[in-house]
Design a protein around this nucleic acid. Structure first.
Length: 425
RNA sequence: GCGGUCGUGGUGAAGUUGGUUAACACACUAGAUUGUGGCUCUAGCAUUCGCGAGUUCGAGUCUCGUCGAUCGCCCCA
């Protein structure tokens, strides 16, 4: 083991993997393009206040942030999520005044959370996410889910499931929260420590407790549905109708509440049903937020978005056996025998200039070893430069598939390759 | 933050109740084939078992610590 290694919860993405990442990233950007989303790039760190908002009960904000301050300047924090920075930027640059609403933005980049690492959960990880800001419509909610869903489909993922719920508007949620507290108050002592904490901080989260899920009070707990006002109910129904129209299968889970405190109305989670995804099965998740833009000092505007865990996406693609980032063979491998100086490099350079992916032999070694490189790199052509031929300014060009070899002037290598290609067809 | 499992070469891994030479396979390098590969054969390839300390005549094998990975909880993408 090397004495230096990546810090806990971080990882190097090596060339064989970075090719996979690149392919997935390109696919995502392409889907965004078709949906009319443009990229926004915000800083990796922000003023701590951007993330740490009043009344926020989530662990992410309270216990998991990398926060630092240098020279007694204002406290800064490595972004633990993407939405806050995007909304801050939206307001700072008054996007609501300079572009047509809704603003359709996407981001892709690293996030940081101080947590105990696990498969699919890292301290530095990558998220792709979108934010649709400025128009509150069930159609937009459905479209946002559709965008994420179509990325997974385009990738070839099949074992996934869309789960959604509604938290209703402020009035409905306040109403529900009160009902829940009233319901659980009598039996609070029987519930686990986490539940007691949730009771105080975020009663909605009581519902997805795994310890007490069979407690009688859970079964008889009031349903969100019954606390929704007409408007919230109608809104959610429209979202479902739109999803039906798009033929996106979904499940409604009335216990889905999500961790971030800013969500209102529609919340959703897309999870993997693949056995290998373990406890970190959520691929992307998000929801609508009504108060965020205003919180950051903008107009009263609603938004909706989601974040997708890139590492999790890669893990699932791998688990489902999707081939990603395949490297194709190169076109030309130039070998050199004896003292041939810069000639192989010159030939490779000329080939590259003519559109052939080319490499050349660098260290002196036998033909056998060089042909092994040809095989490994799956080169279509081998160019052999030897001292003897070099005296006549000549070299050999070999078409690997047909084994056909011709000799030609060093300046005619490109023409010779093109000729052999035509013959090969 | 809590609990469990694991950590041997470039890779996959064997290593019996602690016994001194760390198996096997793949990959890699060289040669047989002194300028034409993918097959075959031969040879080479971990002074060392994540790191540190301890127990012992002796530790990859036991103990403790530490770092990392992993599983579950918490949380969440």
């Amino acid at each position: 083991m090397a004495s230096y290694q990546t810090p806990r919860g971080t990882q190097d993405i090596l060339p064989s993997d970075s090719r996979k990442w690149l392919e997935v990233e390109e696919l995502i950007r392409s889907v965004c393009y078709y949906y009319g989303y443009d990229e926004i790039r915000t800083p990796v760190f922000e003023d701590t206040k951007v993330f740490k908002r009043e009344n926020d009960s989530s662990d992410m904000v309270n216990k998991e942030m990398y926060t630092f301050s240098i020279n007694n300047e204002d406290s800064l924090t490595l972004r633990p999520e993407g939405t806050a920075g995007v909304i801050r930027s939206f307001v700072q640059h008054k996007m609501y005044g300079i572009m047509e609403m809704p603003a359709k933005l996407y981001y892709m980049g690293e996030m940081f959370r101080y947590e105990r690492p696990q498969k699919g959960r890292y301290r530095q990880f990558n998220q792709f996410g979108i934010e649709n800001i400025g128009v509150k419509s069930p159609l937009v909610d459905a479209e946002v889910i559709a965008l994420g869903y179509s990325i997974l489909k385009a990738l070839g993922l099949s074992q996934i499931k869309v789960v959604l719920n509604t938290l209703g508007d402020d009035e409905s949620r306040a109403n529900y929260r009160a009902k829940l507290k009233e319901h659980f108050a009598p039996c609070l002592d029987e519930l686990c420590a986490d539940c007691k904490r949730r009771y105080e901080q975020n009663p909605l989260r009581l519902l997805d407790c795994k310890v007490d899920k069979d407690h009688p009070s859970m079964m008889s707990a009031p349903k969100m549905e019954d606390s929704l006002n007409e408007e919230s109910k109608a809104y959610f129904n429209e979202v479902l109708k739109a999803l039906d129209a798009l033929e996106i299968p979904y499940e409604i889970d009335d216990r889905l509440v999500r961790g971030l405190d800013y969500y209102t109305h529609t919340v959703f989670e897309v999870v993997s049903t693949h056995p290998e995804s373990g406890s970190q099965a959520t691929v992307f998740a998000g929801g609508r937020y009504d108060g965020l833009v205003e919180y950051f000092g903008g107009p009263q505007m609603s938004g909706v978005g989601f974040a997708m865990g890139m590492e999790r996406l890669m893990i699932l693609a791998e688990a489902e056996g999707i081939a990603l980032g395949q490297r194709e063979g190169i076109d030309v491998y130039v070998m050199g025998l004896g003292n041939v100086g810069t000639v192989p490099l010159e030939i490779a350079t000329a080939c590259r200039a003519n559109g052939f992916v080319s490499e050349f032999n660098i260290t002196p070694r036998g033909l056998k070893a060089q042909f092994k490189s040809v095989d490994r790199k799956q080169a279509k052509f081998a160019v052999i430069v030897g001292e003897t031929e070099l005296e006549q300014h000549m070299c050999n060009v070999k078409h690997i598939a047909s084994q056909k070899q011709v000799s030609c002037d060093i300046d005619d290598v490109v023409d010779t390759i093109e000729l052999l290609m035509k013959e090969g067809e």
